[in-house]
Design a binder for these strands. Structure first.
Lengths: 115, 115
DNA sequence: TTGACATATTCCGATACAGGAATATATTAG
DNA sequence: CTAATATATTCCTGTATCGGAATATGTCAA
């Protein structure tokens, strides 16, 4: 086996820097494939392939306009990542809280020894 | 080439579900390798290998205690992911704002036609 | 020192990915 | 209908994994 399939979950889809670049450029708004190719200086097939992966996990949606295909960001699909990360944000905050308590204790001890 | 090295950035390190499980179990506090092996029912070499990857991107730190090695979560290293995600949180909020504006407009038009 | 325990590393096979090149499939224009 | 444009797909190669098994390293205990 290798890494779990890139098409199966958002974490893997976003792990690739090129795909993050595509999402970044789409955050400015809907764009055609050719526009992304120009903006990011990637080959057209690569862009199409990455868009396919992003599409399969729902991070982008697509709409046809003539012979163009306009891709749009679906930020709501980042929610699993956000939720997962949120737990660690809290862990970080708790550590900061503990640090606060520690500093407070230090100050109180100082005050007691001062008086 | 394949995907950019898993050892080089946090996004790739976290893309693997097994490694997220390890981080999850470490969020309860410092744990020895053997404890992780029991808790997650993974093989000891796999745990050690995943810990190595996590260690190389700084997501965990290690401290020796006798013949044990205690690993600890370093949640601050998730910051790059958090920062990247934050931009999309804003995009989502902006979409909600636009929705708000749209609904406000609707109400105002209704009010004008009512009077 | 010898042996038991805890962890890390190496070797292996299978898989799956990225990226390039070539090609296929629309869709519009003339 | 034919050519041109826009995008998607397929074929290929090299490489980077993951996971298992075996082994190496390190540390304590008697």
């Amino acid at each position: 086996m290798a890494r779990s399939s890139t098409t199966s979950d958002v974490f893997n889809a976003v792990a690739e820097a090129r795909r993050r670049e595509i999402l970044d450029t789409l955050s400015a708004g809907e764009k055609a494939v050719g526009t992304i190719v120009e903006d990011l200086a990637m080959s057209q097939p690569q862009v199409s392939k990455h868009l396919r992966v992003l599409s399969e996990v729902g991070l982008v949606s697509c709409r046809a306009e003539g012979r163009r295909r306009l891709y749009r960001l679906e930020p709501a699909r980042l929610r699993p990542m956000h939720d997962w990360l949120a737990r660690y944000e809290q862990a970080r905050d708790e550590r900061l809280d503990r640090m606060d308590d520690y500093l407070k204790d230090l100050r109180e001890k100082e005050n007691r020894s001062d008086s």
